[in-house]
Design a protein around this nucleic acid. Structure first.
Lengths: 236, 236
DNA sequence: CGTTGACTTGATAAAGCTCAAATTTGGTGG
DNA sequence: CCACCAAATTTGAGCTTTATCAAGTCAACG
């Protein structure tokens, strides 16, 4: 299956490739804003995003929401559930999406049989954690416009690495409220921040399509350093 | 060595125990506020904290600092370096500390030979990521006093699980600036927040010792739900 | 063509920052 | 034991950033 798409990260032996291809998967199309896993669930499978966007989030009292990450095709947003029984957060689609479910059992067997595959998947969850850290500094130490700029840069590189974006432009199926919930801002303030970035002509954003007109300026303004995405291998 | 301390998380076979005990380690005492690994380093070893506190952090332009996590004895703050070549952040001591260094090579061999050990270590990095997520909601969606309360509750449970705290009290070798850098607050505002918590007599904090007088009130005020620490196994 | 959800704008308030100046504390050398 | 120093804590005042509340616009869609 398309799972090998993700495993272009490192070199796989033929045997490993074969073992992965034999994993039982269930492919399912989903509508937008549909839950894939909910907080407190005890899932028995992981999901590989084949198409569309998803996010991980948590709802707090008073209806506040924190979004932890955005996910694009090739990601396995709940890979961690392989070793953690209960979800501390939910996963839901943002756009309509196509998802492949892989049961935990065979996946665990696979990692036990092939330490190389285990290392790749482990590494994937570590990159995840590195992105969390980058978001933490955004939430804690960056101004609103720096945080938005940083997010846009990050998403571009992730999409580009998967061959889903080029020329500094991409489809961005996020509402301003969703951006706010990710960056710890109100939807109103996100709106003003976007206006500011548009005003400087650094970006063009309309109809769910983002174009970064001044990559250098945008990246410099927020000290964007792509090292934390650990994309080196994918480029190769 | 004391590495098995950490591996009380799950049941180990004798063989696994033996293999762990044979890992080559170098134990070293360190003074307070000393770097263990720096951002952009390419370490060839991991460090296990045997005694004292450490933290992971990143410095941004203009001297701002974001602290990502606090670490206590039993933690391996840079375990992720096993699968990521270059550090995207630094690790330093907070108090004076004792650290055991374990080279990557034999550790990698160990995980390849014992998938069970690999799973435990992997899981450890996943709990780490879960704590990052909890901090993200603190940074993004909680008020200053909620965030401080949440941090104090988290640290108590982590310390208690390692047998380093009881009766809702513990040594807290952090300055107010360090707390601020962790929670995205200025040192001044941390100070006022602490005053507020002291005023309600929820906590007593002096001379580096924290006592939580009203656990229920403190935990409720910040919606503290310890599930994300995944401590179940350790209790057993 | 009316409804809905997203976006936009304005006005006001709150949370938290910065700067600056005490005050306290913990150590250190005499 | 005391004087002294540096670091940490505490307090005050004014200022920014961002939140909140309230309208109003716009576009998509049945």
């Amino acid at each position: 299956m398309l799972i090998r798409k993700l495993d272009g990260i490192a070199q796989l032996s033929d045997e490993e490739r074969r073992a992965i291809a034999q994993l039982p998967v269930t492919v399912r199309p989903l509508g937008p804003h549909q839950d894939i896993v909910r907080e407190k669930d005890k899932p028995s499978q992981c999901c590989l995003l084949l198409d569309g966007w998803a996010c991980r989030y948590q709802i707090l009292s008073e209806g506040k929401r924190q979004i932890f990450s955005f996910h694009i095709p090739g990601d396995i947003p709940d890979l961690h559930s392989l070793h953690m029984r209960v979800m501390d957060h939910g996963v839901c689609t943002l756009s309509s999406a196509i998802v492949a479910f892989v049961p935990h059992e065979p996946l665990r067997d696979l990692t036990a049989a092939f330490p190389g595959i285990a290392a790749i998947l482990w590494r994937d969850t570590l990159v995840d954690a590195a992105i969390f850290r980058a978001w933490m500094t955004g939430l804690g130490r960056r101004t609103a416009s720096e945080a938005v700029a940083h997010l846009f840069c990050e998403l571009y590189l992730k999409l580009q690495a998967m061959g889903l974006a080029r020329d500094h432009a991409y489809r961005l199926p996020l509402t301003q409220s969703e951006i706010g919930d990710a960056l710890g801002l109100s939807n109103v303030h996100v709106n003003r921040t976007l206006r500011e970035l548009r005003g400087k002509d650094w970006i063009t954003l309309q109809g769910g399509r983002l174009e970064i007109n001044k990559w250098q300026e945008l990246a410099n303004s927020c000290d964007f350093d792509p090292a934390y995405l650990y994309l080196e291998r994918r480029i190769a």
